[in-house]
Design a protein around this nucleic acid. Structure first.
Lengths: 195, 195
DNA sequence: CGTACTGATGTCAGTTACTGACATGACAGT
DNA sequence: ACTGTCATGTCAGTAACTGACATCAGTACG
């Protein structure tokens, strides 16, 4: 690598946008080959052409780099909630239907790779749980804002998240071929049968 | 109780139970006065009269000191599950009833103090979520072992944990005076109404 | 045209959670 | 007493984060 290349990379790294995106890609790649614990933030930063300090300006901590996209997920879920509904369960199911759009066949491979990394690290599972829990909190708030009593809202929200978790887990399981909506329908059917 | 039993207990207290217990008490006290982030492991260890290294021999990480008791909780919950049941929801509700014994009035104050610390720190919330999730996993396994299909078992387990979480949150809320079983009954009633 | 301002980045020093390796000292059974 | 075990101490090291300050491309504005 020549001096000018280094200079170029330095410039690109510094002024070309998308540092967060590059960091995310670099991180996923390194995690797959070296494992999460076997990869330092300094390595990720170097692979993305930035400094360790810059990594922490984009992500609050090392784990967060794997949850970069999740913010749009919560928005999609919440936007799919009907404007008003007396039946909290029905509302939550509508939200689930909207969120399903984010889990198309073209993303299953990436989701599997990501999930394999998370499954191998308790700390990452904690973070995933927290994200889901925050979604449940948002859901609860939305439902409560529609006049549903807090306990019913919380239960409906937790149930909805449980359905999503069960669906997603099945969807990314090795060998599974059914589409996300298909699995979701089965989970919902079993939930109805349960009650 | 024989003399040897007393000796044994003394030994156990000095060498095993003692340090962990002292560390736990010291940690809770310091967290209350200085906050979780404002307290270093070295401080906790010093307050308990041991070394920082010893802290990490008893607890895998700093957070874990606040979840010392939780191991018995899962055992109590699981033991209260009926030996065999075709109805997973009924089985889970039985488990909930058994676990309620751990949340008597005499522990409400301590639980409130602990929960206040956890509520103020996202990292601690993550750990709590993980513990609950592990409980759901154990529950699922137990139910599946009773011949219930995996998806129904997972849903019933998640639902049971959601009921517990909702009940516990209400129970430790400031100003709440109803007993744990009373609140649990109301949550279960609302759950039935929801379905 | 230049000058000041902004925003993302670099640099650097420091704290603290956590880990591995080895030493010590009390107790248990022999 | 002798020896093994187990909780603890000691010490050195790694890596995740944080705060303070410097730098420099691009932009707005005179």
């Amino acid at each position: 690598m020549s001096a000018s290349d280094i200079t170029m990379m330095g410039i690109m790294a510094r002024w070309q946008g998308g540092a967060a995106e590059r960091l995310k890609e670099a991180a996923l790649g390194l995690f797959q080959t070296q494992g999460y614990d076997g990869t330092t933030v300094a390595e990720i930063a170097a692979a993305a052409g930035v400094t360790e300090r810059t990594f922490f300006r984009h992500f609050t901590d090392k784990r967060e780099v794997l949850f970069f996209d999740q913010q749009s997920f919560e928005g999609t879920f919440l936007n799919a909630l009907p404007a008003s509904s007396a039946d909290p369960i029905a509302a939550v199911i509508a939200g689930l239907g909207g969120a399903a759009a984010l889990f198309g066949e073209e993303r299953r491979g990436w989701s599997r790779a990501r999930q394999a990394i998370i499954a191998a690290n308790p700390g990452l599972q904690e973070r995933e749980l927290l994200k889901l829990s925050l979604l449940a909190v948002s859901l609860t708030r939305e439902l409560a804002g529609r006049g549903i009593d807090p306990i019913s809202a919380a239960l409906a929200a937790e149930t909805g998240v449980a359905v999503f978790r069960t669906t997603f887990t099945t969807w990314v399981a090795e060998g599974e071929t059914r589409s996300f909506p298909e699995i979701q329908d089965e989970v919902l059917e079993r939930l109805r049968a349960l009650l």
